[in-house]
């Protein structure tokens, strides 16, 4: 009960933030309409999730959030450059395969963020998420072994996401 109330409140706050960003102003009239609209939507969708739904809201989690984004951007640029090198080189040196990796994350938002991060870093693409297993398509497969592939693909993101969402 408390948990659902908290989820709805978090959803309402996120929607209001989204609204303010859309309108780009903090005038009284926009806030009135925004509060009304966000309230109606948050009440209509009690099972709606938001970006912060299962966020732990401890100082450590915020710190992990910042570090996560830094790490994510670094990986994004680095792997894009790697893929660019593959695409440009005339021999097209690819070695694709679908590997199986394991994740420890339990919360829905954390798992979604993990899968999205893996997908957004080129070279790896989440094909299926089932229970604790992730099936990942890998352009240049380095290892078919479950543990080695987990260490290579998942561990970096999971380290931060575990602190953020659990």
């Amino acid at each position: 009960m408390m948990r659902r109330l908290r989820d709805s409140l978090v959803l309402f706050a996120t929607l209001l933030l989204f609204w303010v960003m859309l309108m780009g102003s903090l005038a009284a009239d926009t806030l009135i309409v925004g509060v009304m609209a966000s309230l109606v939507i948050a009440l209509l969708f009690p099972d709606g999730l938001s970006f912060f739904t299962e966020f732990r809201a401890t100082p450590r989690a915020f710190l992990a959030g910042f570090l996560y984004y830094g790490y994510f951007l670094k990986e994004l640029v680095k792997s894009n450059l790697t893929l660019a090198a593959i695409v440009v080189s005339p021999s097209l040196p690819i070695d694709p395969g679908i590997v199986k990796v394991r994740t420890r994350l339990k919360s829905r938002m954390g798992r979604l963020m993990l899968a999205n991060s893996i997908t957004l870093t080129p070279g790896t693409l989440t094909v299926e998420l089932e229970g604790e297993w992730l099936y990942v398509h890998w352009v240049r497969m380095e290892s078919a072994d479950i543990d080695a592939a987990t260490a290579r693909i998942v561990a970096g993101f999971e380290h931060y996401l575990e602190v953020m969402y659990g």
């Binding site: 893929l83 695409v87 097209l92 080129p122 070279g123």
Partner: peptide, 21 residues
């Protein structure tokens, strides 16, 4: 990448991710 890659998974890899960045 969309033109050069050999199968659909690699095309998704090259196509949608590079364009997102």
């Amino acid at each position: 990448g969309l033109i050069r890659m050999p199968d659909v998974y690699n095309r998704i890899q090259a196509g949608t991710k590079a364009t997102t960045l």
